[in-house]
């Protein structure tokens, strides 16, 4: 049971600690970001291993366990499995999905935002484009191409 608990705890730590980088209103230092992303990278391999070990240990032991131990063991097993799944998902990408494929309008007839609203204007080579700040404030990043050059307007 202690081994199962330790495996569940490890899987949870490796899976949940990386969520630190999406904590809002936090002063993230470069060092901490580095450590946390290292943990995340290790976790993608380690968490499934912890979960596999937990499954193996549980299936080996559960026949010998009392009813309450089985319930507690199942709970810990679920935590380990959840950690394994979470470690393989880029949660950040689910929260802020990447976006592209803009529909364009000519500036003369563009009425999606007010005249007094701000835009980010870019000129590259022969092409000029306006990205409304309200648009970028929602999407944060927009993968685009201007005059054949891949660019990333962001806000």
């Amino acid at each position: 049971m202690i081994l199962l608990g330790a495996l569940a705890l490890l899987a949870a730590v490796f899976a949940f600690v990386p969520l630190y980088i999406v904590l809002p209103m936090t002063a993230h230092s470069a060092d901490l970001i580095d450590h946390v992303l290292s943990i995340r990278r290790i976790g993608t391999v380690a968490c499934p291993l912890f979960a596999a070990a937990a499954v193996a240990w549980f299936s080996l032991k559960w026949r010998a366990w009392s009813r309450w131990r089985r319930i507690a063991g199942s709970g810990l097993l679920l935590v380990a499995l959840a950690g394994a799944v979470l470690s393989r998902i880029n949660v950040v990408e689910k929260m802020f999905p990447p976006a592209d494929g803009a529909t364009l309008a000519s500036i003369a007839g563009f009425r999606d935002v007010a005249d007094s609203d701000m835009v980010i204007g870019v000129t590259l080579g022969s092409e000029t484009r306006a990205y409304p700040v309200r648009f970028l404030a929602h999407h944060h990043m927009w993968n685009d191409k201007l005059d054949g050059v891949p660019i990333l307007p962001n806000y």
Binding site: S106, A108, V119, G121, A130, W142
Partner: peptide
């Protein structure tokens, strides 16, 4: 890049395109 009002950008760059809002999204 430039951060200016739409009217300023339109007056200076009549040749510009603009990125349209996507349907079904509540923008700020």
């Amino acid at each position: 890049s430039d951060e200016v009002t739409l009217s300023t950008w339109r007056a200076e760059h009549p040749e510009s395109t603009a990125v349209r809002f996507l349907a079904g999204i509540r923008y700020p």
